[in-house]
Design a protein around this nucleic acid. Sequence first.
DNA 1: TACGAACCTG
DNA 2: CAGGTTCGTA
Length: 664
Amino acid sequence: MNLSLPDQSMHSSSESCQEDDKPDVMLPCFRRNMYDEPLASYSNGSIISQLLRKTIHNKRALEESHFFLSSSTAADSGQEDESSVSSKDSTVEASSPSGHVSTGASPEGELPATDHLQAKRARVENIIRVMAGSPNGRQHGDTERSDPGTRDTREARESYRENKRKQRLPQHQEHSAAGQVGRKSGSSNGDRCNTKEEECHKLKEQLHSMQRLLRQLQEKFLQVYNQEDPEFEKRDAANVDPENDMQGEGTESFYMSTEDDFERKTSRAAADCKDRMKVVGYLVHQSESQNLQETLKQELSRAVDDCVDRVFKKMSSPGMGLTPQQRTCSSPEVQISITADKKSQQVTSALSQPQAEEAAVKSRSLEYYESSEAQSPQDQTEALSLVVRKPTVVTPVSSVAPTVKRPYAVHQTPFQLNYSTPLHENHILEHLLKYGPHSSFGALPCMPPSMDRTSPDSVDLPWDTIAMRSKVTSSHLGHHPRPSSLGAVAVDNLCLPHVKIECGELQSMAERNPYIHLKKAKLMFFYTRYPSSNVLKTFFPDVKFNRCITSQLIKWFSNFREFYYIQMEKFARQSILDGISNVKDITVSRDSELFRALNMHYNKANDFHVPDRFLEVAEITLQEFYNAISAAKDSDPSWKKAIYKVICKLDSDVPEEFKTSSYL
DNA sequence: TACGAACCTG
DNA sequence: CAGGTTCGTA
């Protein structure tokens, strides 16, 4: 991840959004890198057990393989340590084949109970030894350094790359890693030994107390469910007690059992819970479920009421220069887009803004947002520029039969008109429900509206979808196809801040009309391949231009050109292969495959009448490519530039109609 | 050195 | 289509 490399050229050429987005763009990755593992540890409830497990794991790999760990332990360690490079590597490097086999394929049943206990005992001893700083633990770094020759060159290269990558890690991460290594390896020092023992004691104490806590929790947990399901208590008792008995008595076994039992008990509890859910689902009396229903309803409505109140209180608080009327008008429609990815969000907001909205409304809202932006600059940036909207209409391209040609037509089908406002309200409320009234609105969690995209491919993906595609797996789209349940997303997002954010993007993406600008740009490409930024500004009057957005639009055209020239080269080569010997024989008509390809790209809906001039330009381009290739100029790495130079002169004016914001 | 355009990759 | 890199230019 080169984010951490400040001199990396990530800011070099397109510093477009430097001033406003960089730190936030970094955030998600940064956050992941920095906190993933610690979080994982915490999520387990026991840092100590995590630490212990890792130490054990390393130790186990480095020393002999004659402790056979129970499969559950092995599985746990394996799973848990996947995030740990050191343990993984050392396992790979140091463990003997037998070790692999033994850990990999020794189900618990295969081990006699005594062996099991012995193994546990050994592990505890091992823990203590390791904690005390046993110096014979060879370090991972050493191993790697000691045998580079055994790897083939590719591996070496990769590890080199890996090292390079490691060097790029954010500093604190590196430090913490180095710190760990240092702590592990520097054991000859007497002071350190003492501190180790102290640490060890502390850890043990913590472990004990945490274990107590765990037990308490478990008891409470069980109590809660057993109240409802007395039968279960018996079953539970039958299940739990023997196991506890078996695990024996005394502190040591108690201590030993913690690690494994922690997971086992937790998972068992979870499983039990699941079981109970099932049972409840079937057996709970009607009255009970009704009670539950009532309670839920009450709670929900109360929460909603509360949130509404707070929202409006907040909105009407001093400094929010909106009249009540304006608020009513805009607030449900507001998309305040502060996300981790401010850049794309910002561009998105601006470029996706529907063109049909009234200028007055827009300017009012702009003032509003700009003023609020000034108030809290770190929270609200220019992403707020063009976000107030009316219920939008969109061209439902996919619903238009491809055979129907409607040049310059506007298929303005009401797009979830019935749906729009309540949806927004729900989002705000939902946001408040989830994150409280004081949280930023930026990451309005959301559900993608039920865009009925029967053939997604036939539609240009919304800007935001594209923007976030790299960040969210497409499954998110599939996951929440309908804004039906408030719970689904909420649950999904509970522990995934970045997903939450992107869900916000999802929402805004889906709710805006994200096609317009891209579509318009594509159609403009039929006239101009190299639009100046002034032209762009002229023809996107509804877009609040800033550096970032301008470069984004330019990038669009760059991409368009890229596709265009690729096609040209392809077809030029093809015509050479086809044996066309005269440039004059190269023509581009509306029947040409080349034209079809281009039209498919820039005018997918085929609802725009491509100007003849474009055909001419395409023909000239094709001929240029043909000539160049025929003359073997393509051996020159920059042979295309001459062609570009010719083609950029062939731009024509974009028709005035494109200027009107309601053109499409 | 800054910038834009092309190029490459996912 | 976007992000990143490379390259040429001013």
